[in-house]
Simulated assay, not measured.
Amino acid sequence: MSPHVLILGGTTEARRLAADLAARPGVRVTTSLAGRVARPGQLDGEVRIGGFGGAEGLTDWLRTHHVDALVDATHPFAEAITVNAARAATAAAVPAVVLRRPGWRPGPGDSWHDVESLAAAATVLPRLGRRVFLTTGRLGLAAFAHLRDLHFVVRSVEPPEPPLPPDTEVIVARGPFGLADETELLRAHRIEVLVTKDSGGEATAAKLTAARELGLPVVVVRRPPLPDGVTAVPDVAGVLDRLGFGGP
């Protein structure tokens, strides 16, 4: 029987992994998406949309569909999914691996303020600047809704969900974003402070370089920790090695 790999997707790395596995003779790959993005783009292999119903539902799916390996390649901030995946893999006795691209790290000239949550980011903002470029995604913006004296420019792939801060401009756009465009955006909106999650990767990293070159402070929401006993690999090659598909 062909090995069946389930990828919990939604990231660029998940897409690359699906393409690699789907191109291998005799390998069946299914990518599961939460369905929060209206146009997820073309994916290689099979695709399913929607949740599983928690760890128990995912356990049943792994068993029913005869999954041989589970790859959690969700966003680094999809904490609940990662916890459920770890529990389901253990319950179903399915080998599992977490794919997480490395987080960002400050370099010379950066003025970063690390925080543990969106609520903590909202707490430090008033002392850092009054015009805020907020790039933490469309969910969770209620944490900033009480900040009535600040002007927010919010960028996300899909329109953000309310409640929002009362003084908010919305930019709907999908990366990657280049350095010149990010610099122009920060200048055009007279941004004084940038807020971002530590998503990692190159697609949206240019905003950090632009902020450094303009001397702007950056509030960085750090990633939630992985569940106990769970480790991550940083790239597709590491996942392929872990699954026994390494090499040409």
Rank of each mutant, 00 (worst) to 15 (best):
R100S: 00
P102I: 03
A180R: 11
A80G: 07
D235C: 01
G175Q: 05
R174H: 06
L185D: 01
E182N: 11
A210T: 13
V115Q: 09
A34I: 06
W61F: 14
E56L: 13
G247C: 11
P224V: 10
T64Y: 00
V124K: 08
V157Y: 00
V124C: 13
T209S: 08
R28G: 09
V27R: 04
V124S: 13
D72G: 03
R87A: 14
H75K: 00
L17V: 02
R101E: 04
A143K: 06
L118W: 09
E169L: 12
G137C: 08
E161W: 06
V233I: 04
L243R: 05
F133A: 15
G53M: 08
L43K: 01
L141Y: 09
V98Q: 03
L185R: 14
W61C: 01
G244K: 05
G109H: 06
M1D: 14
K207M: 08
R155P: 11
H151N: 02
R131T: 15
V218M: 10
R87F: 03
S2C: 03
P162A: 12
V29L: 04
G229R: 12
H189F: 09
L17M: 02
R212P: 08
E13F: 01
S117L: 10
G26K: 07
P165A: 10
A85N: 07
R100W: 00
G50Y: 10
R222C: 06
R101S: 01
V124T: 15
T11V: 12
D235Q: 01
V154C: 15
E158R: 03
L164E: 04
G175R: 08
S156Q: 03
H146D: 14
L141I: 09
H65C: 01
V154T: 12
A205C: 04
G201R: 02
R100C: 00
R222Y: 04
E192S: 01
E184V: 05
R101Y: 08
R48M: 12
H113P: 01
D181F: 02
E202K: 07
D241A: 15
S156Y: 09
G103K: 05
R36D: 00
I49H: 04
I171G: 09
I81K: 00
R101A: 09
A122E: 08
G107H: 06
R39N: 06
V157F: 01
S2T: 07
A211H: 04
A89F: 00
V157R: 14
G35D: 10
L194F: 14
L147R: 11
D20Y: 13
D72S: 05
V157H: 03
T59E: 15
L70G: 05
V193G: 07
D181G: 13
V83T: 14
T59W: 14
H66G: 07
A237E: 15
P225G: 04
G247R: 11
N84I: 05
G140D: 14
